[in-house]
């Protein structure tokens, strides 16, 4: 029993251990390997960017990842039923008017002629009158709209030509059905035989509104969206999860604690902060440390304007002026003065 306790003690980080530098080293070293090895793997279809590009994406706290993906599970009642899952997948996929209709512009008559494709609409189980209604809602009142069966004729007599083209583009991108921003929904099976939907996009908010969807098991790799929807704690976990998956697909054996530390550092302020000039490094409390990193003059001038005082509590600033860094053996100080003889 005593032995067990001791072991646990051993695992504790000692005071003054440079955990940040260790994490940076541990994540940075495989990073250099990744640049050389897998910018792109030949013959492998990349669903999501992996390796260094993805890692940079996460660390830079990009608003939208290059390939956003949303994973949707249905609740236990439906998830075993492939048909049902496929049906949901089809229904959440965003359909634009462009996909179910053909457009012809007549600039001399200032008309837009739209022909709805009946078979396409039927396939998606859409009602034609419903679509027409959507079109009606979209166009402004001074534009005239006539319709007959699958034909829609829009004429804007007073419109300049540019506005006509603008309207066409607007109509082409008209949301007809499905969830906004969700595309290319694919149904696959996981290890336990449960069916799930993988789709491009990230609009979890609307996806979760669906009755069949299991809200506890849905996920998107858009960390910023996770933050907007669920808050920092969730975002922190998303960062850990994403980084971990990058590292493990690269077969880089990085301790999860390093990743967690990075994620903690990025989310400690209650919002997601990138690593770099505009984020972590740019928010260091020490003027000297910031000036030593990038934009030296800017930081010094601003410090002068605000009358900042550098407490010399960090590593960089102490190296700069030539003092022992407050880390490891430099953390220990004598607090008692030896009496003078």
């Amino acid at each position: 029993m005593a032995e067990k306790i001791d072991k646990k003690k051993d695992l504790k980080i000692t005071p003054g251990e440079a955990v940040g530098v260790m994490a940076a080293h541990s994540l940075g070293e495989p990073g250099t390997q990744m640049t050389m090895r897998t910018f792109h793997l030949p013959g492998v279809v990349e669903i999501v960017p992996t390796g260094l590009p993805r890692m940079i994406e996460i660390v830079d706290a990009k608003k939208i990842p290059k390939k956003p993906i949303v994973t949707i599970y249905l609740d236990k009642k439906h998830s075993k039923d492939e048909k049902k899952v496929k049906e949901v997948a089809r229904s959440i996929e965003e359909v634009l008017l462009n996909e179910v209709a053909s457009f012809v512009e007549n600039f001399s008559k200032k008309q837009i002629f739209i022909r709805l494709k009946k078979d396409a609409l039927d396939q998606m189980k859409l009602d034609m009158s419903e679509v027409k209604k959507r079109i009606q809602e979209e166009i402004s009142k001074d534009v005239d709209m006539k319709h007959q069966r699958d034909k829609v004729l829009i004429s804007g007599k007073k419109m300049p030509l540019r506005m006509l083209r603008k309207l066409t583009n607007k109509l082409k991108a008209l949301h007809v059905s499905g969830v906004k921003g969700i595309s290319k929904a694919v149904v696959t099976q996981d290890k336990d035989g449960e069916w799930l939907i993988m789709a491009g996009g990230w609009n979890l908010e609307d996806v979760l509104a669906r009755a069949e969807v299991d809200p506890k098991r849905c996920y998107t790799n858009n960390i910023m969206h996770v933050y907007d929807l669920f808050g920092v704690e969730a975002a922190r976990n998303a960062i850990v999860k994403e980084l971990e998956s990058v590292m493990s697909t690269q077969k880089a054996d990085v301790d999860i604690r390093h990743i967690r530390l990075l994620a903690d550092a990025m989310t400690a302020d209650g919002e997601i902060v990138s690593v770099g000039r505009h984020g972590l490094s740019g928010r260091k409390p020490s003027v000297l440390a910031r000036a030593a990193f990038e934009e030296t003059v800017k930081h010094i001038i601003n410090a002068a304007i605000h009358g900042e005082e550098d407490k010399l509590a960090g590593v960089t600033e102490n190296i700069l002026i030539g003092q022992p860094v407050p880390l490891g053996s430099g953390l220990v100080k004598l607090t008692m003065k030896a009496p003078k003889k």
Binding site: A18, P324, S329
Partner: peptide, 11 residues
């Protein structure tokens, strides 16, 4: 050296 905590050696 920072990572190792050898701050005297570093100085």
């Amino acid at each position: 050296l920072i990572g190792y905590g050898a701050s005297m050696l570093l100085k």
